[in-house]
Design a protein around this nucleic acid. Structure first.
Lengths: 157, 157
DNA sequence: TTGGCATAGTTTAATATAGAACTATTTAAC
DNA sequence: GTTAAATAGTTCTATATTAAACTATGCCAA
C-alpha cells in the first residue's frame, strides 16, 4: 500500500461530500427559483422582501449583510423593488448617508401572500429527509458555515 | 396545545435545515470562487475546463448537462474560453449541428496546474467535519438530490 | 479646525444566468 | 419525397453578481 493511500482517501471523501452538497443545494435552489419566477419575483427580490418583512426597515448595508450580497448588488435589487412599487427608500435619520429601505403596503401584501407558499415548497423539498436527518443536516451545515466565518475573519486581519 | 402545533414544528425544522444548507453551500462556494478568481478563472470557466479535462471533448449540450447550465449560457462560457485560447470548437461528425468542444494544450496545462490546488482547498473547507460527518453529509445530500430528480421527471410528463 | 480616514451608497465593467425567439440541420411521419 | 417535429447552437433581453472606482457624508485626532 503506497504511503499516500490514506491521504488520497481523505481527499476523495472530501470531494464527494462537497460535490453532493453542491448538487443538492443547486437543485433545491433551482426548483424554488422557478416557483418564485412564476410569482414574478427573482430569488434576490424575494429574499429582500422576506428580510424586510420579518426584520422591519433596514439600511442597504444591513440588508446586504443579511442577504450575503455586495453593496452594489443591493442598490440594484432595491432599484427594481422600488420601480415595481414594492419598497421605498427613505432618508430619515441624523446621518444623511443612511437610506432606510421599507416595504410599501403593496410589497407587504405580496410577501404575505407568497411567503407561506414558499415555506410550504421548502418543506416539501426537505421531506426527502426524516425529521432527525433534517436536524443532522442542519447541524453539519452549521459547522461548515461557522468554520468559514472564522476563517473569513482571520483573512481580514 | 393547538392542533397545528406539530405541523408548525415540522415546518420550522424544514426551514432551519434549508437555511443552514443554503448558508453553508453559499459560504463554501463564495470562498472557492475567490480562489479561482485569483487564478484568473470564473467558477463556470473552471467547471467547464475541469469537465472537459476529466471527460474529454463534449458537445455543448452535453457540457451544459454536466454543469447544470442552460444552452445559451454554455455558448457564452465557451466563447470566453475560446477567446483566451483555453478551448476550441470543432465541427467534426456526420451531424453538422454538433460542435465538439476540446481543450487546447494551453487549457489542459492550466487545469492540470489549478485542479490539485482547488481540490486541496475543498478538502480544507470540508475539514470542519470529521470523516464520518462528511459521509453522513454526502448521504443526506444525495437523498435530497435524488428526490428532486424524480420530481423533475414527474413534472416533465 | 481641519485634514485624513471611515462609512453608505451609486456607478461602471465584466461575466453569469435563465428563458424565449431564432437559425440551421436532421429525422420522422405521412 | 415533402412537410412537420425535434435537436444543436446562437442571439437577445432582463436581472444578478462581484469588484473597483467614485461621491457624499460623518468622525476623529493632531
Amino acid at each position: 500500500m503506497p504511503s499516500h493511500y490514506k491521504g488520497d482517501l481523505n481527499r476523495l471523501r472530501s470531494l464527494n461530500a462537497f460535490i453532493n452538497l453542491m448538487r443538492a443545494s443547486e437543485s433545491v435552489i433551482s426548483r424554488l427559483q422557478k416557483r418564485l419566477s412564476a410569482e414574478g419575483l427573482t430569488a434576490s427580490q424575494f429574499g429582500a422582501l422576506e428580510t424586510l418583512f420579518h426584520l422591519g426597515p433596514l439600511c442597504q448595508t444591513e440588508l446586504g449583510k443579511k442577504l450575503l450580497k455586495t453593496d452594489g448588488n443591493v442598490t440594484m435589487v432595491v432599484d427594481h423593488l422600488e420601480k415595481r412599487g414594492l419598497a421605498r427608500r427613505v432618508r430619515a435619520g441624523e446621518d444623511r448617508r443612511y437610506v432606510s429601505v421599507q416595504l410599501t403596503s403593496k410589497g407587504r401584501a405580496l410577501i404575505q401572500k407568497i411567503f407561506p407558499r414558499h415555506a410550504a415548497a421548502i418543506q416539501e423539498e426537505m421531506s426527502a429527509l426524516s425529521a432527525s436527518e433534517q436536524e443532522t443536516l442542519r447541524r453539519l451545515c452549521r459547522k461548515l458555515g461557522r468554520k468559514n466565518e472564522i476563517t473569513k475573519k482571520e483573512i481580514k486581519k
